[in-house]
Design a protein around this nucleic acid. Structure first.
Length: 940
RNA sequence: AGGACUGUAGCUCAGCUGGUUAGAGCGCACCCCUGAUAAGGGUGAGGUCGGCAGUUCAAGUCUGCCCAGUCCUACCA
């Protein structure tokens, strides 16, 4: 038997079937770095319209987790796809470098600033630490295939950036949005410093527990509010507290608007007294106060009592009833003594009612000289004295001790107090920032749309933004204030600029080292430097100023897009918006895209304790970054993003399918030189023109999907194209023609031309997502081409079917339905054991008139579409019992095993096999292909 | 506890303004092929559309409640 295999044009390529990505990706990264892919893209896209995605800086601490990966990969897909769409889309990654977490890390390494090491050394160490973290994270981002200017990222710790942050602060101050105020913070009286929430530990502490009565100034008003005039004796409200030391700062009492409050008749100190407290705590409270007999006189909702005024237990001070949702029935009396100096909720309630703080305690926890009765006493020791004073005034209703969990300083292990301290705020309302911000929100495109509601709600409720921190590792609030008045120096802009210039060269230490006389001359001794640092949210919040405007390759305001996790509505989206509106009166972004968080396959968040987390390096070291990227693209980022080993494996399956489709296309371009062998579209066979048309149409869809950030849809379309249009139809059909026709025949070159066009398109479609694979594939496609696929835009060599095309899209759609019908009938026969492979069969298609006329257009080539050795057309009316219905109206199909001899070359079973003496094992067309002028094909 | 979002076959997703037996791909099962071969082709089985109640002639699609999950309310980035 002659070996005719050698006469076939079988596919061949060196593009490997298996990605082996974990090994190959690093090689590709090395090549990209060596050839400067990012710079090449910049050069290739120079002059195009810009699309600026401004990077939200991750915090420069900790190893990368999947959330980082999702964020950076989404950004990368956008940046790359915008490139293919035709934009110049530079990407400057950034890092957020200041702040408490780094400070903490460094503290554990070298000790506390101002204690074990001096501040300057401490800051230097923080800087060094942050840079180390950045290096680690950067390696990871690069490994994920994210393109950007990794050599020159923006860092909030760059001297230039620090200087610009200070300038931004100055701008905001100039515009009048900045106010100085007070705010309670956790304060360590032993350490003499403010603490962040993260530095608070909770330990048991024994405190005094007292009930105190506040006397109504106008009893009749209270009675009226209760709608009664019953009872006798003083009218008073009862509060309960475990912090008697806060009573000197007591300025109000809070009640809940929806709770029921009762007025009871009781006896206190042998005198009749009427007391107010919450009905829900009546029993517990009266028992605690030892009120054995009492009588309820009236009951009313809290909101009916708002504004009633009482006397302070021992000061001449008005104490009003305020309404607050924070009041509960957990303990006490349902009436909360309210000292804005010493509680966050107290502070907020009072702020709402316009009650300011008193600031009675100094840094060491000692009452200031202006505090009556207790001046000079220490907060830790004053409780008994205060209780005595209450008793003397007849205000004390109960006294006990209580052990409870209480906030302690993590360093000194001493109890903490809340203490109102002077702070700098960006006011939401002083200059109408809130209203302007809400207006700016309207002009932004929020993806998905609910992001707008979310940020609007936050902006509406947002309290003034406290931007000052009593920390070491942060950009200094470079203000100079008058020692007596606390007022900002009138020459603020000049001072800011003086400082900024120094910081540009010397870093933030320049501020701490600065002698005021250098910039203020003789008046220096009247002023002092503010020692607070900026909230790190301010650093990143003003990158629209310090980075977006400043970097020449960006140089644009506002950015086209900000893209972060949904938590950043509260974070960066908001801080950026506030600062931008304060400085420029507009939003810093045109579009905001939000993604959800990663969860496991059951929808639970990833956590160490559940052990359900998957680290990015696990993925890129096993399956490869492209699989991780494909997972990102194939997951709906608008909600939770489930991830598991199983999901990853599914993703890898899909990857292989796309890769193998590309590989098959490549393999069939073996020997094809596009410049030499391409066939003009008009000369191509009908089916080949159809394939190119499919790609043409799909490319338009894909362009729009990428352009609108619908990566999931783009991925699915690409995948379906590979599976359905190509694998299940086109490629299956053209194999015969590819393999059997003459190498340089029109039949084959037409097909190769189509495959080439499809491949050129496909490699670009997948590039934003499967960056490694696309660029690997790029090297195997014939023809002259750029160094990387990323220097390209979408392939422009695709041609749609002509409007007057005889075999149009609808025709081929019908052919696919016919093929489905044949397959079903074939499968029936196969299951009955009557037939095996489709080439061993002959089919008869019984068609109605329309269908028959249509299919007749394919003439003798119908069998190549059905993949059978013979395919005959017949009238539907001729169908016998062996013809089975199909899902296509007007089509019945019968199948029979072919009786004809098998051609040794093309494996079709044809009656003309053996007619040629020279090639007795071949069918007619194979003889023609092997020894003649070659078979002619018209359609398929 | 409040605010926002999510919940359609084992997995990833479609299901427009409510209207025929809820779709696709993957996976799975079975079959074919062995000239894409650690590939390829075909057929098929899988869903009380988170649950309950309601509006409606009609609900996956509207309303309410409930359940589960995620993010934010903690100044922590």
């Amino acid at each position: 038997m002659t070996d005719y295999k050698a006469t076939l044009n079988l596919p061949h390529t060196d593009f490997p079937m298996r990605g082996n990505l974990a090994k190959r990706e690093p090689e590709m990264l090395a090549r990209w770095e060596k050839n400067g892919v990012y710079q090449r893209i910049r050069a290739a896209s120079a002059g195009r319209p810009k699309f600026i995605l401004h990077d939200g800086p991750p915090y420069a601490n900790g190893d990368l987790h999947l959330g980082h990966a999702v964020n950076k990969i989404l950004k990368d897909i956008i940046v790359k796809s915008k490139g293919f769409i035709g934009y110049d889309a530079p990407y400057v990654p950034g890092w957020d470098c200041h702040g408490l977490p780094i400070e903490h890390k460094v503290e554990t390494m070298i000790g506390r600033a101002g204690d074990k090491v001096d501040y300057k050394t401490f800051r230097a160490k923080c800087r060094e630490f942050a840079l180390g973290q950045i290096d680690n994270q950067r390696k990871g981002f690069i490994r994920m295939g994210v393109f950007g200017d990794w050599e020159n990222p923006y860092l909030t710790l760059n001297h230039q950036t620090e200087a610009d942050i200070i300038r931004a602060l100055g701008k905001i101050a100039e515009s009048g949005h900045l106010v100085r105020g007070f705010k309670p913070v956790y304060w360590s009286v032993v350490g003499g410093s403010a603490l962040a929430e993260a530095e608070v530990e909770y330990h048991d502490k024994t405190s005094f527990s007292i009930d105190v009565r506040y006397k109504a100034q106008d009893p009749s008003a209270v009675l009226k509010a209760f709608g009664t005039d019953a009872g006798e004796g003083e009218v008073g409200a009862v509060i309960w507290t475990t912090t008697p030391w806060t009573l000197p700062a007591s300025q109000a009492m809070s009640i809940h608007p929806d709770l029921d409050y009762v007025l009871i008749q009781a006896t206190v100190n042998d005198a009749p007294a009427r007391l107010i407290l919450a009905e829900g705590l009546l029993e517990a409270a009266t028992e605690r106060m030892g009120l054995e007999t009492y009588e309820t006189l009236a009951k009313v909702k809290g909101d009916a009592l708002e504004g009633l005024v009482f006397d302070h237990p021992f000061y001449d001070r008005n104490i009003p009833f305020l309404l607050g949702d924070h009041v509960t029935l957990d303990a006490g009396t349902g009436i909360v003594h309210t000292a804005p100096d010493h509680g966050m909720e107290d502070f907020l309630v009072c702020q709402h009612y316009g009650i300011e703080t008193l600031n009675p305690l100094d840094d060491k926890g000692v009452y200031r000289s202006n505090v009556e009765l207790f001046a000079g006493e220490h907060v830790y020791k004053v409780d008994p004295h205060i209780i005595d004073v209450c008793k003397e005034h007849g205000r004390l209703l109960s006294e006990d001790k209580l052990t409870h969990s209480y906030a302690h300083c993590w360093r000194t292990k001493t109890p903490l107090i809340y203490r109102a301290t002077p702070q700098w705020f960006i006011s939401m309302d002083k200059e109408g920032l809130r209203g302007k911000a809400l207006e700016a929100i309207q002009g932004v495109r929020w993806v998905p749309g609910w992001g707008q509601n979310r940020i609007e709600a936050m902006m509406e409720q947002s309290p003034d933004w406290c931007i000052s921190r009593q920390r070491t590792w942060g950009v200094p609030i470079a203000f100079v204030t008058h020692k007596e008045t606390g007022e900002l120096h009138p020459e603020l802009p000049r001072i800011i600029e003086e400082v900024a210039k120094r910081v540009e060269t010397g870093g933030m230490d320049a501020w701490w080292d600065l002698e005021l006389s250098e910039i203020l001359g003789d008046e220096a001794d009247q002023y002092e430097k503010v020692t607070d640092t900026l909230d790190v949210w301010f650093d990143s919040g003003v990158t629209h100023e310090s980075v977006l405007r400043k970097r020449p390759e960006l140089g644009q305001y506002p950015a086209d897009m900000y893209l972060e996790g949904s938590d950043q509505h509260r974070g960066w989206f908001q801080s950026s918006l506030k600062t931008a509106v304060a400085m420029n009166g507009s939003a810093p972004y045109k579009q905001v895209l939000t993604h959800g968080f990663t969860v496991d396959e059951k929808g639970y968040k990833m956590s160490k304790s559940l052990g359900n987390g998957i680290a990015p390096d696990e993925i890129w070291n096993s399956l490869g970054s492209d699989i991780m990227r494909l997972w990102v693209a194939s997951t709906d980022y608008s909600g939770e993003m489930p991830m598991s080993k199983d999901i990853l494996n599914r993703t890898a399956d899909a990857y292989r399918r796309i890769r193998n489709t590309a590989r098959f296309l490549t393999a069939n371009l073996n020997g094809f030189e596009p410049a030499r062998d391409s066939v003009a579209n008009d000369d191509m066979l009908a089916l080949d023109r159809w394939a190119v048309d499919r790609a043409y149409r799909l490319q338009q869809e894909i362009n729009d999907l990428y352009d609108n950030y619908q990566f999931l849809q783009a991925y699915q379309k690409i995948h379906h194209f590979c599976v359905l249009d190509m694998g299940g139809f086109y490629l299956d059909i053209i194999k015969d023609r590819q393999y059997t026709t003459q190498e340089n025949s029109l039949a084959r070159r037409s097909c190769q031309t189509a495959l080439y066009h499809v491949l050129e398109a496909l490699v670009r479609w997948i590039a934003p997502i499967l960056s490694f694979t696309a660029d690997e594939l790029w090297q195997y496609i014939p023809g002259e081409r750029s160094d990387t696929v990323f220097e390209q835009t979408w392939y422009d060599g695709l041609t749609p079917l002509a409007a007057d095309e005889a075999l149009d899209g609808a025709f081929w759609s019908t052919v696919q339905e016919v093929k489905d019908g044949v397959n079903k009938v074939l499968e029936v026969a196969r299951n009955e054991g009557r037939v095996g492979g489709s080439l061993k069969t002959e089919v008869t298609l019984y068609c109605d008139a329309d269908l028959k006329a249509g299919l007749a257009k394919l003439g003798e080539e119908l069998r190549f579409v059905t993949l059978t050795s013979d395919a005959r057309l017949a009238d539907l009316s001729e169908a016998g019992d062996d013809a089975l219905d199909t899902e296509l109206e007007g089509l019945k199909v019968s199948v029979a095993a072919s009786e004809q001899p098998k051609c040794a070359r093309c494996w079709h079973q044809r009656p003309d096999v053996g007619r040629n003496q020279e090639h007795p094992e071949l069918c007619g067309r194979c003889v023609e292909n092997v020894a003649g002028d070659g078979e002619v094909r018209h359609y398929a």
